[in-house]
Computed example of a mutant assay.
Amino acid sequence: MSEEFPFVGTGSGMTDTTATEDNLSMCREYAWDFEKNCFLYNGNGQHIMVEGVEAVKVWVYKALQTERYQYLAYSWQYGIEVKPFIGKVMGVQERYSEIKRIIIECLMVNPYITSVDSVEFTATGDKVVCEVDITTVYGEVNVNV
């Protein structure tokens, strides 16, 4: 596994299994509560681990919430570049087209993602929700950000 991706390591004693013929180890992440926007913990206060498609879903959600180059903890390949759009004068469709491009660029660095199938935007007042459909080595995933 490359050190450039903020994936959870396998130091928890879990057995690694092969995800694909390319010998990718099983994707693991800490479980995430998408409604409350926080980690999930078990009854003992320890992080809950998820694997496979659920782990990729967490990675996608977190990557799309993290501004690229802002945090030293992440490589420069991780995250999304949204800051350049703040205050920039663009038409709505032009802005959505550019944001779609940077979303695809952000997600395709992940070796577990094989394609970004659709990126749809829904505006409600001053809030825009993005629905992303991707294909992973484990199957299809839908993430709303």
Rank of each mutant, 00 (worst) to 15 (best):
I99H: 01
K88G: 02
M90K: 04
A31V: 05
E81N: 11
F85Q: 01
Y138I: 12
E67Y: 01
I104G: 03
K62R: 12
E67R: 03
V82E: 00
E98K: 05
N23V: 12
V129T: 11
K83A: 10
E51S: 14
Y30W: 08
Y112S: 05
Q93S: 06
N142D: 04
F7C: 08
G43I: 11
I113F: 03
V137Q: 02
A63V: 05
C38V: 11
F39N: 12
K88H: 06
M108Y: 11
Y69H: 13
E98S: 07
E35K: 15
G79I: 03
Y71N: 15
E105Q: 15
D16W: 03
L24E: 11
E67C: 03
T136L: 01
Q93M: 04
E94N: 08
K62A: 07
V8D: 02
W59I: 00
K127L: 13
L24I: 07
Q93T: 05
T18Y: 12
F39A: 13
Q46D: 15
A63C: 10
Y30F: 10
V60E: 00
E51I: 07
N37C: 14
Y41D: 15
A19Y: 02
T114W: 05
N44S: 15
F7S: 06
M26I: 13
E3V: 09
G125E: 03
T18I: 14
P111G: 02
